[in-house]
Design a protein around this nucleic acid. Sequence first.
RNA 1: GGAGAGGUGGCCGAGCGGCCGAAGGCGGCGGCUUGCUAAGCCGCUGAGGGGAGUAUAUCCCCUCCGAGGGUUCGAAUCCCUCCCUCUCCGCCA
Length: 422
Amino acid sequence: MLDLEYIRGKRAILEDALRKRGYSTDILVELTALDQKRRELITKANELRSKKNHISQEIGNRKKRGEDIDDLLKEAKSIDEQLEEIKYKEKEVDKKFWDLWAYVPNIPHESVPVGKDSNDNVVVREWGEIREFDFEPKTHWEIGELLGILDFESAAKMAGSRFATYKGLGATLERALINFFLDTHRKNGYTEIFPPILVKPEALFASGHLPKFEEEMYHTERDDMYLIPTAEASLANLHRNQVIPEENLPLYYVSYTPCFRREAGSYGRDVRGIIRVHQFNKVELFKYTKPEESYEEHEKMLRDAENILQLLGIPYRVVLLCTGDMGFAAAKTYDIEVWAPGLRRWLEASSVSNVEDFQARRANIKLRRKNGKKEYVHMLNGSGLATPRVFIAILENFQQRDGSVVIPEVLRDYVGVDVIKP
RNA sequence: GGAGAGGUGGCCGAGCGGCCGAAGGCGGCGGCUUGCUAAGCCGCUGAGGGGAGUAUAUCCCCUCCGAGGGUUCGAAUCCCUCCCUCUCCGCCA
């Protein structure tokens, strides 16, 4: 959520931002009208309440003196009636206003390239050698089934499409990745968190996932709770309604959680293998920072995520998302894409975003300066990393002619073997 | 699931129909004192919103004591519902 200044004094900036993101600016016309109406009603209601307060006070005074209060009672009643009507209208307008406002995206940072869609994203750097194969590289699902470490049939039987059962060393490799990610980030100063993964609607509102992404999440009807689509949702709530002394910032958190996504808008896309599944594991990085440090911290977080792939020896590239491709809450986002030779394409394995104070405003998280002044903190999140696509990258990049997969050295102690053989 | 206790400002904690946006303490900020530090003394110190105003100066007003309703001219204080925390019992890992 943005500062309301953006539809009053700083309106031109917001208009520009919406245009760059490819949003219509029509919404602003309605928002402005609602804002004006809202303020009119607030002013009127305040006046009436003020009058009423004076009368109540006067009643108290008169009663003490034993004087007659009938005329005041009558006046109070008439004010109540007027107030009732205005309050009703105010509520209505207020709700409309905030409902709309909740759909206004963040302002892109000045360093973000302007563009329409993913074609306008900018590749910032590439790392690693893309391997030349002297045989036809297989896809991860072919390798997974050949090695007996991925089982799609049993998963489909119990859960439907877009699920996978990890078996034997597959399950071990998955767990190894999680532990390796966590351990590495912990060494870099991130505090490990294992949060609730079933949360209340207000938590998802604070993180910015509601109301806009309701369709993307699994909801439990009986208790009105949601399975988190990412640990970001939980971590953004760690300090909800808190004021953090500035000397405690920045705060670094790392969290492994399963993530659940309905993938509502992507029927038929990436249906094979584990490219796009309803349930996956992710290790998430999260920071709370002072506003003046958030962009520096953003770069550092990106490096921390990249570091994992470098240690694993997986070729990747860093992509700076353009205004049109960026997420709703983000002011700036880098994606890290790993190379999958079997699929012959780059796969997004991480998304590292600075949302500035967009979530802090919703979650009401502030910092206290040394002089006592309070401001909203900046919040950053990034995958470090999501396991399925790293799993894919390991299978496809490190496959041998016979289908066996060489385990990266840093994982060998975790997995217990050097090679997974058929 | 059953019984009880409780949720008040950055924190602790009093208030239990009007004089309470809230005593007192801690912390923080400013000042005095002081060779420095500590201690002491004095003052200031919640949030959100609307309006006046060139103003992140200042002033006026409104709302907020877990959330939402209700009673009342008037509620932190009384009533109802819900949420959360704690204790005990039951149940289960």
